[in-house]
Design a protein around this nucleic acid. Structure first.
Length: 496
RNA sequence: GCCCCCAUCGUCUAGUGGCCCAGGACGUGGCCCUCUCAAGGCCAAAACAGGGGUUCGAGUCCCCUUGGGGGCACCA
């Protein structure tokens, strides 16, 4: 590997909603680059717009990142030498830099009212022109502007984008991007209430926080040239720009909408990180899944976070939009569960049982894991496959207890006979129980599936379960015989 | 409408001019294993959007068309 300089990267979300897959991937790629280069991963909050603040979103964000294992080195909650890391606490800083821009002639005060601007846009729309500021205040003299400000007139500060020529800069995934200056609006940098907008705030912070790589969503691609103008107006060095693509809905037609998010939830999936946690997906699986949505490797896609750090290369990220495929999430989730130790699976599964009201015995749980783990796609699935281990009573349905091509009476007899065989054993283990049971199956001229199917329902209460004899061993001889007795009673009620 | 970006199997992707009659993964189908469900093993079907160039040679470079996506706020 060539010598690399430590990257300082930032994940800078705004507390305006829930943390979704797209944010998670952006955070992951940032994290990976920082780790790989021995740099810092910074978490900054872009909360300059109080109107869009959503209660609890900041907590959800930090929880989500930590759940995924993407701990930041600097920023919210942990602090650092370049704070504060909350933009709402940096208002004066932005104002100071906005003034510099005005003084150097790169920005100007604009007194146009919102109403007038709306009218201008209407006109432009009618004439089918591009929507942009018409430049009314662009060339106001410093004196005029100064007087109107002291008169108390409300104003915003706009960037004075050059009218002629073009600007070009480099995006790591797309190469050179050239845009005509006439297509770049005189964007508002500071609102009339004195709060800076993203365009200014982010550039100032990235510079002050010594960010080397700006990795963000492609929604910023269209204002990217503006940002380059701002950075250059200050005379600062540009960071490496990396614009990630967006995620498309599973059909590949358009980005995820509220409606699509609801549909996903209906089918047991979600695009929100904390939902995924609730559903029982494991962070390793989620990480592996989103890693590969926009970046690929020739072979060996199964990776844990440390392996991702080794293999990931930000420059090889794919610039095209990617459709979300939940089936692949299921695969990675299950695969990563199978990659965990039994102890780890046990401790991760436990909270899901407890939340469902089960009393969990740790020793029993660790016995169950080996026969349970390969059946899990989510940790929550454990409830279905292993719930009966922790129930005092199960309620098998009569219909389920009747074996394939058998009557209730015949089934009862089989359970009876099985009970006798199992009762004669010192204990029920697969080694001790399976041979005599198979012998019985042969003597009765039946199929193993018929007999074991009945017993499965009798012992577990369900038609699908972990292997029968292994399950019996964990349940214990006494309880198994009790359940068989009960099954005979249920079957008897069906013979009358 | 205007601006910008993108384009390899159903999906995510490998591919940086000859190693590609295109590789991997998920999903799908078949077989094996099997007490159910899984897991696992083997096999199979499945793609360079279309058209022009450049070149001895193009999935790879250029142009156009088409399709898709993003943006056009005193939001981020």
């Amino acid at each position: 590997m060539e010598s690399i300089t430590p990257a300082r990267v930032r994940f800078a979300p705004s507390p305006t909603g829930r943390m979704h897959l797209g944010s998670a991937r952006t955070a992951l790629y940032n994290y990976l680059l920082a780790q790989r280069t021995g740099g810092q991963f910074i978490l900054r909050l872009e909360d300059t717009d109080v109107n869009r603040f959503v209660e609890g979103s900041e907590e959800e964000l930090m929880h989500g990142l930590r759940w995924l294992g993407l701990q930041w080195d600097e920023g919210l909650d942990v602090g650092g030498p370049y704070g504060p890391y909350r933009q709402s606490e940096r208002k004066e800083i932005y104002l100071e830099y906005a003034r510099k821009l005005v003084d150097s002639g790169h920005a100007y005060a604009c007194f146009c009212s919102k109403e007038r601007l709306d009218g201008v846009r209407q006109e432009q729309m009618k004439r089918k022109e591009s929507l942009h500021y018409d430049g009314t205040c662009r060339n106001l003299s410093k004196e005029t502007a100064g007087r109107r400000i002291t008169d108390g007139e409300p104003y915003v500060i706009r960037f004075k984008t050059p009218r002629d020529g073009s600007i070009s800069s480099h995006d790591a995934l797309r190469g050179e991007i050239i845009v005509e200056n006439k297509n770049i609006d005189d964007y508002v940098l500071v609102k009339s209430d004195g709060w800076a907008l993203y365009h200014l705030a982010a550039m100032v912070d990235d510079h002050l926080m010594k960010i080397t790589h700006v990795i963000r969503g492609s929604e910023w691609l269209s204002t990217f040239p503006l940002h380059v103008h701002i950075v250059r107006a200050f005379g600062w060095e540009e960071p490496e720009w990396v614009h990630l693509s967006v995620f498309l809905k599973p059909s590949g037609k358009g980005k995820m909408s509220k409606r699509d998010a609801a549909d996903a939830l209906d089918s047991g999936y979600s695009i929100f990180i904390t939902d995924l946690e609730k559903l029982g997906y494991i962070p390793e699986g989620v990480l592996n899944w989103i890693l590969l949505m926009g970046w690929g490797i020739a072979e060996g896609e199964f990776m844990t976070l440390p392996e991702m750090v080794q293999k990931f290369d930000i420059d090889r990220v794919n610039p095209s939009p990617a459709a979300i495929d939940f089936a692949k999430l299921d695969y990675f989730s299950g695969a990563h569960i199978r990659n965990l130790t039994n102890e780890d699976v046990s401790s991760r599964v436990k909270p899901y049982f407890e939340k469902a009201g089960y009393q969990v015995d740790d020793r029993k749980m660790i016995q169950i894991i080996p026969i349970l783990r390969e059946r899990l796609v989510t940790l929550d699935d454990a409830l279905f496959f292993a719930g009966f281990f922790f129930k005092d009573d199960i309620e098998p349905a009569l219909a389920d207890l009747i074996g394939k091509n058998l009557t209730a009476a015949e089934s009862a007899k089989i359970v009876q006979r099985s009970g006798e065989i199992l009762a004669s054993l010192d204990e029920i283990t697969p080694e001790l129980a399976e041979p005599p049971m198979r012998l019985m199956v042969d003597e009765l001229g039946l199929k193993a599936g018929q007999v074991f199917g009945i017993l499965r329902v009798a012992v577990t209460g369900q038609a699908i379960s972990p292997p029968l004899f292994e399950s019996m061993e964990i349940i214990g001889k006494t309880k198994v015989l009790e359940r068989l007795k009960k099954a005979i009673e249920i079957l008897a009620s069906g013979t009358e």
